[in-house]
């Protein structure tokens, strides 16, 4: 599904190489986790895949199915089925959460040549999905993420994911700033979306999120490369011993 091949990325404004040859394949139906120390390039990978400005791809490629991701606009990547749950969801004063969700859902449908969702149908679907994430009507009415707590923001990300039904979901440190209960709620939301046709890439510092969202594979990223790949046990090892051993082993 998602195929990243020898991806090299530098900052646009600075001569600083962040990714130094990332290779990764996420199959449909699988959950991959990427762990790694600060500054290893995990978040950069998620931004580059989703098309945020400020980065320059110097080598390599990334495909979602047969779509060349790096060649197209962020909105086209979204329409192709890519979704990034932000580490820091953005507050947009003056734009209602419902308006935002409906505009996004229908923009993607339109881009794919599908019929747009009617207001009534949309309302019905969004209410049902919001309910399972414990998002109340008040939160849906408020401006996007404005005045939301950390947990509310992350639940709102998962609601967007549930509404947009992407093929490939990237979660960038979705566990950061969450207490145990909030993390459980988010994990349940993610698990409800696990599906044979959908791939997940979960970026996290800590093992604890992976207790709730069980990965099929765990990758360790350091200095812009994936240096080790294993099963869920790799995450447990890191929780116990930190990154030092693995980094030493590779070096």
């Amino acid at each position: 599904m998602l195929k990243i091949n020898n991806l090299h990325v530098k900052l646009e404004d600075e001569d600083k190489q962040i990714l130094k040859g990332v290779n990764l394949e996420v199959e449909a139906g699988k959950v991959h986790a990427i762990m790694g120390p600060n500054g290893s390039g995990k978040s950069t990978l998620s931004y580059v895949l989703s098309g945020r400005g400020g980065y320059e791809v110097t080598e390599g490629e990334a495909h979602l199915g047969d779509v060349d991701l790096l060649d197209i606009e962020p909105e086209e990547r979204a329409a192709a089925g890519l979704f990034l749950a932000f580490q820091y969801p953005v507050e947009i004063p003056g734009v209602g959460n419902m308006t935002f969700l409906r505009t996004a859902v229908n923009a993607q449908r339109k881009a794919r040549g599908e019929e747009e969702m009617s207001a009534a149908e949309f309302l019905k679907v969004v209410r049902a999905k919001a309910k399972t994430l414990k998002i109340d009507a008040e939160m849906l009415k408020r401006p996007v993420n404005v005045g939301f707590s950390g947990g509310e923001k992350k639940r709102n990300e998962i609601l967007q994911m549930a509404m947009l039904e992407p093929k490939m979901c990237i979660l960038d440190e979705t566990d950061s700033g969450l207490d145990v209960d909030a993390m459980k709620l988010v994990a349940e939301g993610v698990n409800a979306l696990r599906d044979e046709g959908r791939g997940f890439l979960i970026i996290t510092h800590y093992q604890r999120l992976l207790d709730h969202i069980k990965p099929d594979y765990v990758h360790i990223m350091a200095d812009g490369r994936i240096i080790k790949t294993g099963g869920p046990e790799l995450a447990l090892e890191i929780e116990k011993n930190g990154y030092a051993d693995i980094l030493a082993e590779v070096a």
Binding site: P74, E75, A78, V90, I92, T103, A104
Partner: peptide
């Protein structure tokens, strides 16, 4: 706001529509 613009685009909202949405929200205040 480039960050807000990217956020909207990443959800599939075309850049022109996202710009209009942000412009409108600015005026609405």
């Amino acid at each position: 706001d480039e960050t807000a613009l990217f956020y909207l685009q990443s959800r599939g909202v075309p850049k022109a529509v996202a710009t209009d949405l942000l412009t409108l929200s600015f005026l609405t205040e």
